[in-house]
């Protein structure tokens, strides 16, 4: 049927649609019940998944090499628990250093002062550009470069505090410097992305209300940026949890290194690696829940699908 012919049929009323050779009429079929094939497929999919899980569990339980007895024995072993504490503590402190320094770097990077902005760029370039393993070993061996560390007037002026590098840079300090400073470079980019996601109009409105730059940042920009910052930061925390296992190279007994020490003696490699994995998974689960709660806290006012309600018209009574 061509367009022109349609135009030649003035006032003939709605013509029955015969293009598909059918004569469907909505009125006739409207009362038929509706079936949803997709809802039938759901239980089938579930059955396949359950079967798969059952196979995996069966294989693991039947396999004597897994060593369930050893796993039970070492799960709460003193050395393992000490390693767990160190891993948790390193993750928390390194992330704290990374977040605080990352916010500072992000603000510097966005500053209109070109020196601050370029200093931040340089920092991010350097720390993202070198392997964190190299940074860790570097901090640990700082004494080879600077045998004595001092705080004082630069360019040969007097020193106020000074000490030997080996005494100041303990393995713990080296681990925190290496992990924290590296993390700051990544956090800076995450925070910068969050800050830039806040609409410029929000800043203008706050400035027009006589707020100063620190007030605008603290009350208006950061709370809204958090919605964008929190999810990738959760990723970073979980990444850091596992990144801390690198500290074994500078002789710190974290969770993984403690397990390695044990299976180095008794050769129960697989059971101990399973023990370690159980603990990493447990910590990751806790952190994921934490992330969920924090995300919920900062999504207030955001138009999510569940929250977006049609605005309620009001009887605008204006005196």
């Amino acid at each position: 049927m061509s367009m022109s012919r349609e135009h030649e049929r003035p006032g003939s009323g709605p013509a029955p649609d015969t293009r598909h050779g059918s004569d469907l009429e909505a009125a006739k079929i409207a009362a038929l019940p509706v079936r949803h094939p997709r809802r039938v497929r759901g239980p089938v999919g579930a059955a396949i998944v359950l079967l798969g899980v059952a196979v995996v569990v069966d294989v693991l339980v039947e396999n004597k090499n897994v060593g369930w007895g050893e796993i039970g024995h070492y799960l709460f072993d003193g050395a393992i628990l000490d390693g767990l504490v160190l891993t948790s503590w390193l993750t928390a402190v390194a992330m704290a250093v990374g977040i605080v320094l990352g916010i500072v770097l992000a603000l510097m990077r966005l500053s209109s002062n070109p020196f601050l902005s370029w200093a931040a760029r340089g920092y991010i370039w350097f720390f993202r550009g070198t392997p964190v393993l190299v940074q860790l070993v570097f901090w640990y061996n700082l004494a080879a470069l600077f045998p004595r560390l001092s705080v004082g007037v630069p360019f040969g002026g007097p020193a106020f505090v000074s000490g030997s590098a080996t005494a100041i840079i303990t393995p713990y300090a080296a681990a925190l410097l290496g992990l924290g400073l590296n993390e700051a470079a990544y956090m800076a980019e995450i925070v910068r992305g969050g800050l830039k996601s806040v609409d410029e109009g929000q800043v203008e409105a706050a400035r027009a209300l006589a707020m100063t730059f620190p007030q605008v940042t603290r009350k208006i920009v950061l709370p809204q940026a958090m919605r964008v910052i929190v999810p990738p930061t959760g990723n970073q925390v979980i990444g850091m949890l596992k990144l801390t296992s690198l500290v074994s190279v500078i002789a710190l007994s974290d969770l993984l290194y403690s397990a390695q020490t044990i299976y180095g003696h008794n050769f129960e490699t697989i059971p101990l690696l399973i023990v370690v994995s159980i603990w990493y998974l447990a910590l990751t689960t806790v952190l994921s829940f934490g992330q969920m709660f924090i995300e919920r806290r900062f999504s207030r006012g955001a138009p999510t699908r569940a929250k977006r309600r049609a605005p309620i018209p009001d009887e605008a009574v204006i005196a």
């Binding site: 109009g201 027009a208 209300l209 707020m211 100063t212």
Partner: peptide
């Protein structure tokens, strides 16, 4: 910047796109 902010006290502004603080 701090004194400019003080200048703006007593000076309200209403924007085309409302710019209410979304959070």
């Amino acid at each position: 910047e701090r004194q400019i902010a003080r200048n703006r006290i007593g000076l309200g502004m209403v924007f085309q796109r409302f710019n209410l603080f979304a959070h």
